[in-house]
Simulated scan of single mutants.
Amino acid sequence: MRHHLCHRYIFAIMPVLLILTLALSLSGCGKKEEEKKEPRIVFTTGFEENELFFIGEKKCYLPEALLYISTHDTNYEDMYGPGIMDRNVNGTEISDKLTGLALSRLAQIKTMDLMAADRGVTLSDRDLDKCTQAADRYMRSLSASDISELGMTYEVILGMFQDYALAWNVYADVTKDINPEISDDEARTITLKAIMITSPDQAKALQLAGSLYAEAEAGKDFDSLADGHEEASLEKFSFSKDTSEYSRDFVDACFRLSTDEISAPMVVPEGVCIVKCISSFDQDETDANKVRIVEKRRAEAFSEVYSDFASGLYAGFNSDLWDEQHLTNRRLDTTENFFQVYEDIFSIL
């Protein structure tokens, strides 16, 4: 599927554009300004009608922003339930945070399109045809209420799909030289089970772990070792060598285990555990990890180029237009998702 695996990486590592951070005070990213390479802010009153912001020569109009915001809200509600929009984190409502994320993502797309122009990257005739298909499908899904709420037109929808497709084309261009070959050893993923003993008394936890380890070595079923011990629980997990979730000593000890081998008791932050290696080489997880490693490298390489490019841009935000917006009904009637429509159309070879 075209670019499908890139999404969660590329938007996670790109810097939130300072223009939106200053205008909305929503990102809460916590970085000092001097640590980031961001577009320069230009204060101006020379905006076109419905122009919400500009970055360099690229402009974003209000209907585009409202569509991104509505789509992000809908995705979040579908995952966590409708009540999620009323919650707040550290004094900021979830809805405000989602607005910041949506506008940041849209600003990133506009910046990537400027990169495309700078690098001579364009849309092919096939790309343009697919954008037309996507726009036709999405526009047909919008109700009259959706169109009125967004101030949407077919031309805007088509332009948004073209912007999105061009952004991924420049991503592919920047990252085309990243080596996609990852060795089994580098990506190797193991699957384990562990008996975790949590107790405020580490000496007692070690004593119980030693007793359970002896039972396991004597042939008792590993999965039943925790039975009858309320402080002990059975867990199953997988990880690769490059995991940052566990300590290096713990990871190295687990990777030294052969399939079906059981470790001696180990002290970990959660307590004391004994580990059984279920598979010292999980092929499916290893193959999946190869994909993750390649996409992470691509995203890191792109982020460096993107950051350098963005630092030379100027940007402006129409705060007067934004202050006029009252985003009360943020969910659309359509059952189509803008980004999923793109994936569906562009995944067709």
Rank of each mutant, 00 (worst) to 15 (best):
H7D: 15
F11L: 05
I13F: 09
M14H: 15
L20H: 06
L20Y: 05
A23K: 07
S25T: 04
S25F: 08
L26I: 00
G28S: 07
C29Q: 06
G30L: 07
E35W: 12
R40W: 13
I41E: 04
T44W: 08
T44E: 12
T45S: 11
G46P: 06
F54Y: 14
C60V: 13
E64T: 08
S70N: 15
H72Q: 15
T74C: 14
E77H: 10
D78M: 15
D78H: 14
Y80A: 13
I84V: 15
D86V: 00
N88F: 14
N90T: 10
E93T: 01
E93W: 03
S95D: 13
D96E: 02
K110C: 11
T111W: 08
G120C: 09
V121S: 12
D125P: 10
K130M: 09
C131K: 12
Q133V: 01
Q133K: 06
M139T: 08
T153A: 07
Y154V: 01
E155V: 05
V156S: 11
L158I: 04
L158D: 07
M160K: 06
M160L: 10
D163R: 13
D163G: 10
A165V: 01
L166C: 01
T175N: 02
K176D: 02
D184C: 00
A187H: 02
I190K: 00
I197V: 05
A203Q: 15
Q207T: 04
A209E: 05
G210V: 01
Y213P: 05
A218K: 08
L225D: 01
E230R: 09
L234H: 04
F237D: 06
F239E: 05
F239P: 03
K241G: 06
S247P: 04
D249I: 10
F250K: 03
C254T: 00
F255D: 09
F255A: 08
R256L: 13
S258K: 10
T259F: 08
V267K: 09
E270K: 10
I274Q: 02
V275T: 01
S279D: 01
D284S: 08
D284I: 03
V291S: 03
V291T: 04
I293Q: 02
K296Q: 09
F302P: 08
S303H: 08
E304Y: 11
D308I: 02
S311Y: 13
D320F: 11
D320S: 12
D323E: 02
L327S: 12
R331C: 11
D333R: 11
D333P: 12
F339M: 12
V341L: 09
Y342E: 13
S347Y: 14
